[in-house]
Amino acid sequence: MRIYDPDEATHQALREINIELILDAPNEDLQSLVVASTTNEWVQKNIGAFSPAVKFRYIAVGNEVKPTDAAALYFSPQCKTFTMLRSGSFSANATTYIAPIISFLASTGAPLLANIYPAYISDPKTIDLNYALLTAQATIVRDGTLEYRNFFDATLDSL
């Protein structure tokens, strides 16, 4: 289970049950978390106070932060996450940011978390609504031998 910011009621509800939790450090906290003592306080308050009764699996740093966002200034190269997958590959400007992140995650065995959802709203004239809603009856997109009836599957395969 993933929650996007610490929530005591949620932590209490997850005590002593067999659900592992991914807890996000919210984007608005990133600036303060560059200071080690603040990070230690945040971890103790939001994780230490509930562990081991709550099974924390990962801490995610940043959610959909783009290089142009103010929060991007406070990421170490190992902690950047961006929403920059376009047409089956990362955009050129995203590659310089995402490559070190992927290398870091691979070297530590940590997962790459990706929000995958249809982007119909961004291009409703080009993207078929049925393709975005997972209801297309026929193939909408062909990529070599691969055929896709929905945007979700195509995006997941691209990632």
Rank of each mutant, 00 (worst) to 15 (best):
T10G: 01
T10R: 01
T10L: 04
H11L: 14
H11M: 15
H11I: 12
Q12I: 15
A13N: 08
A13K: 12
A13H: 09
A13R: 12
L14Y: 05
L14H: 02
L14F: 04
R15D: 08
R15L: 15
E16A: 15
E16V: 09
I17K: 03
I17M: 05
I17C: 09
I17L: 04
N18R: 14
N18Q: 15
N18L: 11
N18F: 12
I19P: 02
E20M: 14
E20F: 12
E20G: 14
E20K: 14
E20W: 11
L21N: 02
L21F: 07
L21E: 04
I22E: 02
L23F: 03
L23T: 00
D24M: 03
D24A: 04
A25C: 13
A25P: 03
P26T: 10
P26E: 06
P26F: 05
P26N: 10
P26I: 07
P26Q: 09
E28W: 15
E28R: 11
E28K: 11
D29Y: 13
D29C: 09
L30K: 05
L30M: 14
L30E: 03
L30G: 03
Q31N: 01
Q31M: 02
Q31E: 12
Q31A: 01
S32G: 11
S32C: 09
S32N: 12
L33H: 06
L33Q: 05
L33G: 03
V34D: 09
V34A: 11
V34F: 08
V34Q: 12
V34L: 11
V35T: 06
V35W: 03
V35Y: 07
V35S: 04
S37Q: 12
S37F: 01
S37M: 06
T38P: 00
T38K: 06
T39Y: 06
N40T: 13
N40P: 01
N40S: 14
N40M: 08
N40A: 14
N40K: 13
N40Q: 12
E41V: 03
E41H: 04
E41A: 10
E41T: 04
E41M: 00
W42M: 06
W42C: 02
W42A: 05
W42F: 13
W42I: 03
W42Q: 04
V43D: 06
V43N: 08
V43K: 07
V43W: 07
V43L: 15
Q44R: 06
K45T: 05
